[in-house]
Amino acid sequence: MRHLLAIEGMPRAEIEALLLRAEGFREGRNSERRLSGKVVGNLFFEPSTRTRSSFEIAAAALGAHVLNWTVAGSSASKGESLLDTVRNLAAMGPAVLVVRHPSSGAAELVARAVKCAVINAGDGQHEHPSQGLLDAFTLKRRWGSLTGKRVAIVGDVLHSRVARSNLYCLRTLGVEVVLCGPATLLPAEVGRLGAKVTTELDEALEGADAVMMLRVQRERQTEALFPSEREYHRRWGLTAARAEGLKSGALVLHPGPVNRGLELAPEVADGLQSVILEQVENGVAVRKAILEAVA
C-alpha cells in the first residue's frame, strides 16, 4: 500500500489484511520495531487529541521517531500554500506524513506533491479512513464476521468524514448501513453512496446490530442547522430509553469526543452496550497496521 487516502475503492482483501494485521498487534504478537530509524510526521491543520495521540503512540511503538507539527489556522491565511508547507516538511525526509486538514481532498493533494507515504487522518467532510478501519475492527472483534449485519450511523452526516469512511468500509465487508439524521444534516443524494437513508431515528434503530452515533460538530456549524440541542437530543439522541429498546446485544459506538447529553445520554456512553473505549484502544493497533503497511 503506497498511501492510505480513502476507504472508497479499497478492495475487500486489502481491508481484511489490514484488520488481520491489526489483530496481531492487538494480541501483542507483532512486537518488532518495523519503523526503527524512520521518521513519521504528524501534520495537523486542525485540533485533534485522540487521532494524533493514537498515531503517535502507534508510530513510537513501532520504533519510529515522531515529529508533530500543528498548524493553527490555515496556511492559506498566512500567504503560504499548503503545498509549500508540505514540500518543506517532506524535504526533512520523513517516511510517512499523517495529515489532518479541514478541507476535503487535502491529503490527496499532499500525496501528489511528496515522495513519502501519506496517511489521511481526516480531510474536511470527505474521509477518515483509519477511523473507518478501527470501527470495523472493533465490530469484527465482537462479532467474528460482519457479513449480514446491520449498522445505523446517526447524526451530522453532512459534516462527517467518519460516516463516509465507515459506510464504505462496512459495505465492503458485507454490512447493511442506514444513515439517519435531521434533514438539514443529510447531504443531497447521500443514499447513492450505498446506504438506506431516514430522518426517523426509531426506524434506523429497528433491527440494528450496532449504532454509531456521530459527534455533532458544533465548530463546523456556521449556522443553526437544528432548532436546539434539547430538540436534537429528543429526536436524534440515543437516550437511555432508546438504548433499552435496541436489539439484544446491540453495540453503541462513537468516534469521540462525545457531547454528553447531546447525541448520547451519559448513561448510554458509559453503559454495557458501549464500546467507545474499545474503539480508542483498538485505534492504536489499527494505526500500527496502517503505518507498517505504508512505511
Binding site: 467532510q125 443531497a188 447513492r192 456556521t222
Partner: peptide, 19 residues
C-alpha cells in the same frame, strides 16, 4: 451559497465538498 464550492448534487456529497 454559503461556503459552497460546487453545485449541490451527488458529486459534491461524494467528494465531501460544501455545495
Amino acid at each position: 451559497s454559503g461556503r459552497g464550492v460546487l453545485g449541490e448534487g451527488f458529486v459534491a456529497t461524494w467528494l465531501g465538498l460544501p455545495s
